[in-house]
Amino acid sequence: MGAAALGNPRVRAALRLPSAVARALGVLASLWWTLAWMGVTAAILVHGLATGAMDARWLALPCGGLFVNLAAALATNGKLRRQPGLLVFHVGLAVLALTAAGGRLTALTGSVEVTQGGAFDPALVNAKAGPLHPWGLGKVTFVQGPFRIDYDAGLQRRHTNSTVFVPTAGGGWDEVTVGDDRPLKMFGYRFYTTPNKGFALLLTHIGADGQRRTGAVHLPSYPMHDYKQANSWTMPDGPELELWLDLPAPVATPEQPWSFRVPDDATLVVGLGARRYELKPGQEMRIGDARLRYEELRAWMGYTVFFDPTLPWLAAAVLVACAGLGWHAVVKIRAVAGDADA
């Protein structure tokens, strides 16, 4: 039984729909409720703006209210049903809101840094996910290749071209170029480059037993934090080390165009307590029974990770809703244009 039929008095009578239910639907369908729920929505938005802490979850309340209001209106308001454009717009909006809500429940947004020459590690993704997110990040595999970022004078970042290598079914690797507006798409996840990128110290720890472990320590984003290219790292079996990069000449030149690159003249300075050690790529130092080898300086790229399976459905709902509204507007404007010209 469609909502349209429910609004028909004869159908209601045939169904013996209690008049109390009909009255309740009539009350719920009131456009005063529409205005009231819109007011609640506006109040939540203004509160979010005023406090600077917008929590969109609160919008579920007025959206739910508007959804009930619309459903009741569809059941009881013949005038709404007789205007197909308006009907399509409202149903489209309801579908849009429901789809967006579904999207929030399954979505994931996050960020991750990947070292050049290293593989993407899902465990390093700093993610915020909805409760129904299917967690398929473990299936994503790619290796970070080189990237190029040009800057105009004034530190204006131009396009980012980040090369990543994606495994193929045949056991090979495909080369894919990723950018701010050209995501890497794998298993529903989208990886977008960001302004966040910098230098990575590739270090090898050689334990007393001779076991070698190589890893990267990422320095803060460059050129955003060009004045503090430092980080700390605690050795597996030893003390915390202060690491910073001594750049004889800055890579970034704010006054003129430049390209992001890994400097070849940088020196790693290792702070251990009050002592300082300087290492060039390939050099190592002894710390207790272990050794620390500075392999080389690399780059790391920061990505935004996004997952929302509802994107195409959202786009479809928006298109349908806008088409309905446009149709309704054309009908209404045609009706009054003749009067105005008369």
Partner: peptide, 23 residues
Amino acid sequence: WGRYWNWDPLETWAFLTWLAVAG
């Protein structure tokens, strides 16, 4: 920016404008 809506101040104001017109 890898997200279609983020409730940044301009987006929030744009939605408030939308609400005002709808109201």
